[in-house]
Amino acid sequence: MFDWRWDFTLNILPRLIEATGNTLLAAGIGYAIAVVIGLALALAQRTPFRALTLAVREAVEFIRSTPLILQIFFVFYVGPQFGIRLSPWVAGMIAIGLHYASYLSEVYRGGLDSVPRGQWEACAALNLSPARTYFRVIIPQALPPSLAGMGNYLVGIFKDTPMLSVIGVAELMHTATAIGSESYRYLEPYTLVGLIFLAISLPSAALIRAFEAWVRKKLGMTR
């Protein structure tokens, strides 16, 4: 059948753990980009300019319904064709950040739509500037209903980072594949990668749910 070798496992574990750091870093940077650009994409769909709204809407739809892995290749290889050379990390972060920005913009849109009309009217009546209206009144109320979606996509981006291995970002999957081709043993590296993903994503999902519940309670919201 198969033989699981513990000495080999212990040998490769430090390398995989080191690569896990890169995976978490990639997820963190990608998510930070997505949170900011996603908000920009959501707000751009709320301006009085119809053309802008439609263009952003269509772009978001396009990014959401095409494969991330293809977008990673696109960003990485199209630059050099026009004389712009991007490192695997930069190209990967742009691609994954934009992909998740389009998802998050939908989450924000839902959150913004859930703020009652009266809040906008009150801001107008108080003569608040658009910036103050958004940052002091609307966004703080739109945030709690968006938290569940935001949390899901944080775990989601973490699970999508293995795709960065295809352009050579030295994250977990890339390291496991390298170990496999050096040693011709795939059982331990790929199984360990799976276990590391489970060990991080399951507790994170539970933690995010707990955080969400805490925020709701803190803000005195039922449900």
Partner: peptide, 24 residues
């Protein structure tokens, strides 16, 4: 459900393609 939602599709694909043969 927890195993398949808790890991990446790419990890699952590689595992099925490269590791499953070791189990016959």
């Amino acid at each position: 459900i927890e195993i398949f939602r808790g890991t990446s599709l790419l990890v699952q694909l590689y595992w099925i393609f490269f590791v499953l043969p070791l189990f016959g």
